[in-house]
Design a protein around this nucleic acid. Sequence first.
DNA 1: AAAAGCCCCTGGATGC
DNA 2: TGCATCCAGGGGCTTT
Length: 271
Amino acid sequence: MPELPEVEVTRLSFADRIAGARIEAVRLGKPLRWPLGCDPGTLAGRTVRGVRRRGKYLLLDLDRGLLLLHLGMSGSLRFDGWMPEAAVHDHFDLVTSRGVLRLNDPRRFGAVVYCEAEDSPQAVKLLGGLGVEPLTGDFDLDAFHAGLRRRKAPVKQVLLSGDLVVGVGNIYASEALFLAGIRPTLAAHRISRPRAARLRDAIRDVLARAVAKGGSTLRDFSNAHGESGYFQLEAMVYDRAGEPCRVCGSPIRAIRQGARATYFCPVCQKS
DNA sequence: AAAAGCCCCTGGATGC
DNA sequence: TGCATCCAGGGGCTTT
């Protein structure tokens, strides 16, 4: 479900409220993708310093150690002073002095992992191979173009892999490639420098606009306040197979790349 | 090193 | 109405 915009919108919706909170208890539901990695009881008494994001991971900094949170395909967080009894898909509660942070995740591809430090083996295994953050000054054109040039896979797959640039998932990969006028099947190494520049700008643009719209709510995404996003209404191609291109009117085409749907306009994205 | 497949899991939509 | 099949916003791991 959640790509960079949804994760960032989630972060923004509770980071200020949870900063400074004292952890009182941890409640676990059904197992998530990985075990917590520590005795839940040992977290009581620690303080949440703040919340950062790296790619699609959220990092809850504690006064000692940190919690890595991932929302997988179907996860969402809530943070509230009052929380109802845990329901079927509520699998993690962080009970704090300022409220309960709850992870709801029907498919359980998400995870909450405790690490002693950001350079601990567990943290490095999960975060170490990640590409650059697209919304910072680190998203350098030279490095991006050089990265594309050494990959022969279709550019859509390279964007999804997350080892060049992070946070671009299945919705925003299709959207960014449309904005850049690039066919998703084009081998990454065949992208010229000017087109790489266009693609970089398109990625930044679509992600930033999606954050501003509260992310995309396709079926059930909501931020930690329970509010939906609206960017799906502005999608140019995603989930619009057969519908007219918003620029040229041609029917949007859907194909399959690596078992995942890709959408593009055959006219606006000639190559 | 890079690419392709597999797999984790549940629920909703579709088709017979 | 019931049941089978396919699909879904991710990504780590194993195999080529």
